[in-house]
Computed example of a mutant assay.
Amino acid sequence: MKIPKRIQPLVDDGLVDEVKSQLMSGKEASVYVVRCGDTIRCAKVYKEASQRSFKQAVAYREGRKVRNSRRARAMEKGSGFGREQQEKVWQSAEVDALYKLAAAGVRVPEPFGCFDGVLLMELVTDDEGYVAPRLNDVEIPAEQAVRDHKTMMGYVAKMLCAGIIHGDLSEFNVLVDEHGPVIIDLPQAVDASANNNAEWMLARDVDNIRQYYGQFAPELLTTEYAKEMWALYEKGELTPETELTGEFQELDSEADIDAIMKEIDDARAEERFRRERIKEAKEGVDESKFNWADNNE
């Protein structure tokens, strides 16, 4: 296929030898299947801020630090240079998170670097060479749902131990290969210790995964992993080896009407956000049925 303009510099530099096909086009980025030597990978091309319709971006940027004071001031003022630097921070956030999470034992696509807004990374496939399907596209037996849910909660806990919250985790941002779930799409990852929205973002991530697996194993719907994790995290007692139970005992206290109303408002906002993200995810073009093994014969 014709080489996209943003990928051409990577071809010129010898990082990419061939663009085979467009895998999907979403609101934040377009993903292409590319050949790098004898290896098939994917290239995620981030869209410019003016073309991107990611919701509530400010909530995700909170807490992201820039060491260079000039860049930080420009970003705060919103100047042209500042917006350019903000884009670089946004784009580098995903590759930084991928490296950190891989080191923490979380299954994510292996990154190979981000070059001028193009992230080169592993193409996750199934055992037959097909692009691995999203979690949303697979049917799961109850016993496997319980196992995979436990695996996912372990990944979320390891992410939190590494100081990262996905921020947009759902059945649309998880691939499934022969070894189980693989977490993808992390440009909006937030700093758990510096973002004031961290706790409810963690709760939303966990709830999305709980609701999905709960379709196949209803007993999962009563679990409280987010509250358990966050309580341990705040006390400094959460570790990658912590055996989570999914149980959490609320302390009895007098009703706080303001807090209750805030929770209701937050729940409504989260549901609107979830519906928007589901709609956006469904608009992407997914060519997961293409068999790259056959294509290369």
Rank of each mutant, 00 (worst) to 15 (best):
K227C: 01
E237V: 08
E276G: 08
S69Q: 09
P141R: 02
T39A: 11
L119P: 11
V138N: 02
Q85D: 05
L98M: 12
I164A: 04
A162Y: 10
V11S: 01
A132S: 05
G26Q: 01
D252Q: 11
A145H: 02
S50F: 12
Q86C: 11
A194Y: 01
T39Q: 15
E143V: 08
D12R: 14
A93H: 09
R6H: 13
Q144N: 10
T39Y: 06
I264W: 11
R64E: 06
V34K: 09
M159I: 00
D116C: 05
K47C: 07
L221W: 02
K100Y: 12
S30N: 14
S53E: 14
Y212L: 00
N296C: 11
Q91A: 09
E122P: 03
G80Y: 10
T223V: 02
E250V: 12
W230K: 04
L119H: 07
P4S: 13
I164D: 00
D38R: 08
V89S: 10
R210H: 00
R268L: 02
G113M: 12
L23W: 09
A217R: 06
L23S: 10
N291G: 05
P109C: 08
D207W: 01
E199S: 04
D127L: 10
R268C: 00
F216R: 05
V33A: 07
S193G: 04
A293P: 03
C36Q: 07
V156E: 03
D177P: 00
D294M: 10
E297Y: 09
L220W: 01
E247N: 13
R134K: 09
T39L: 10
R107T: 04
G63N: 05
I3V: 15
M121C: 14
V106I: 02
D127R: 14
V89E: 14
T239N: 02
K282S: 14
M153S: 00
A157I: 02
R52T: 11
Y46E: 02
G37Y: 07
E270T: 13
S288C: 13
K158N: 03
S21C: 08
A93C: 14
A231C: 02
Q249T: 14
A145L: 02
D12S: 13
A145W: 00
I257Y: 14
T39E: 14
C114T: 13
E280P: 04
I7V: 13
F248H: 15
A162G: 06
M229F: 05
N208L: 01
Q8H: 12
M229E: 09
T239Q: 08
R147M: 09
D207G: 00
L135A: 00
G246H: 11
A72Q: 13
D12A: 13
R71I: 10
D294V: 15
K20W: 08
P218D: 01
K289V: 08
A104N: 06
